[in-house]
Design a protein around this nucleic acid. Structure first.
Lengths: 95, 95
DNA sequence: CTATATTTGACAATATTTGACAAGTCAAAC
DNA sequence: GTTTGACTTGTCAAATATTGTCAAATATAG
């Protein structure tokens, strides 16, 4: 499970759009869209932008979730140290 | 610049160890150690473990810094959204 | 200057990621 | 029970990225 894909699916279904339609707008295979929504694959930033545009969603919201997914996979299995590491990075971005 | 390499250099120099010596213990080229300390390359987790062992440093401290580096590079250029994304991930690890 | 330590850039080898395709499940309609 | 449409899954080759080494360039110390 991932933040971005989950939210995308939610938004897409609310608008009764098909995977196929979103995929067409990105010019990728429907199978790939399916994987993206399910979190099997990561979308590129460009793809997130195109998706947000197509489904009229807030780009920053989607990019934030997409970024959270990236951060989470960077943390990987290091759950024990994650909190402290996140604090360190957070501090750096305080400015 | 990166957290892990910077701290490693500090610790290594305090003990007057040479890059070459640490490199030998990891069985890698000195050039690679240099890059790791300077943040040009990332160390693998296994390498961090071996380094901590060799320089008698606290493994968790080094791993935390190493993880912070990974998180930071996951964030990449998305500085604007970083803080919110980090919050999301942090919340997830609260348990 | 000489000797040793570190840094750098280029490179081959390896590993990972990417998107397409084919085949699969599932549910609703027929 | 078969067809249809939406979605899912596994596998593949191509594209990209990462890894560690080598040789050459730079520092730094004596």
């Amino acid at each position: 499970m991932n933040y971005f894909g989950q939210r995308l699916r939610e938004l897409r279904e609310k608008q009764e759009l098909l995977l196929r339609q979103v995929a067409a707008h990105l010019e990728v295979d429907t199978a790939l869209m399916s994987k993206i929504e399910r979190g099997d694959r990561n979308a590129s930033k460009e793809q997130v932008v195109k998706i947000a545009e197509f489904i009229h969603a807030d780009l920053d919201e989607l990019l934030t979730l997409w970024l959270a997914d990236r951060v989470e996979s960077a943390v990987g299995e290091e759950k024990k140290l994650a909190n402290e590491a996140l604090n360190i990075v957070k501090k750096k971005f305080k400015k």
